[in-house]
């Protein structure tokens, strides 16, 4: 079974790490992926709701509401995707034992993540105070936009916290070159958040 095939690959088979760890990692990885699947369903449901409301024949954006500012959001998206790239390199560096590089890359990721959140905060402030579009007061537009992007923003926020914990943990020697499941999970989560954003960006700003 899968456990056996793991032991074939890469440095794991040198016998540096024990069977228990390998099997546990397998379980956690699968569990974590399934968690992401169900999280994805959560987003999908709200996306369905948004598309359903959007197509209920009222025109979009509804009267009195301007189209969203694509340019700014595009820049902000680039920031988020950039952080995806740095996260990728962070993990690669860890795997190859370049721990300093890893740390820098992870810090970049966190900074970019915070940057994205600031951008979103700026966008929200603008919408609320300048365009008078609010979560509850602007009909289905406000409801779907703030709920979905807010949920995503919350995920980014959780991600930033999680990555910070990972940074501290790796500095504190929790992970080794061979045992770094937490870092894998963090990377997966961060990529997941990126992918969700691709979808949200397309359906809110481009569609």
């Amino acid at each position: 079974m899968a456990v056996a095939s793991i032991t074939q690959g890469g440095h794991d088979s040198h016998g540096e790490i024990d069977q228990l760890y390998i099997e546990t990692r397998e379980l956690r990885l699968q569990g974590f992926l399934l968690f992401l699947v169900s999280d994805c369903v959560l987003f999908s449901s709200f996306i369905f709701a948004y598309l359903y409301l959007r197509n209920s024949g009222q025109g979009w954006p509804p009267a009195g509401i301007n189209r969203l500012d694509v340019a700014f959001a595009a820049v902000n998206s680039v920031v988020l995707f950039g952080s995806g790239a740095t996260m990728h390199y962070a993990l690669e560096n860890w795997k190859h034992g370049n721990f300093m590089k890893f740390a820098w890359m992870l810090i970049f990721t966190i900074v970019l993540g915070v940057g994205f959140l600031c951008g979103q905060g700026y966008e929200y402030t603008n919408l609320i105070f300048h365009d008078h579009v609010s979560w509850w007061g602007s009909g289905i537009f406000g409801a779907s936009f703030f709920t979905l992007t807010g949920m995503h923003g919350f995920h980014v926020f959780v991600g930033v916290c999680y990555l910070t914990v990972l940074l501290l943990q790796s500095a504190g020697g929790v992970y080794t070159k061979d045992k770094y499941f937490g870092l894998t999970a963090g990377t997966l989560y961060w990529h997941f958040v990126d992918v969700i954003w691709v979808v949200l960006f397309s359906i809110f700003y481009l569609l």
Binding site: S45, F48, A49, Y52, L53, S56, Q58, P62, W135, W136, G139, I140, G142, A143, S144, F146, T147
Partner: peptide, 19 residues
Amino acid sequence: GVPFFDPTKGGSPVLWQHM
């Protein structure tokens, strides 16, 4: 008061039924 389902605010009761 975030409108999803209330028809007087543009929401759709049928959306709930789908979900």
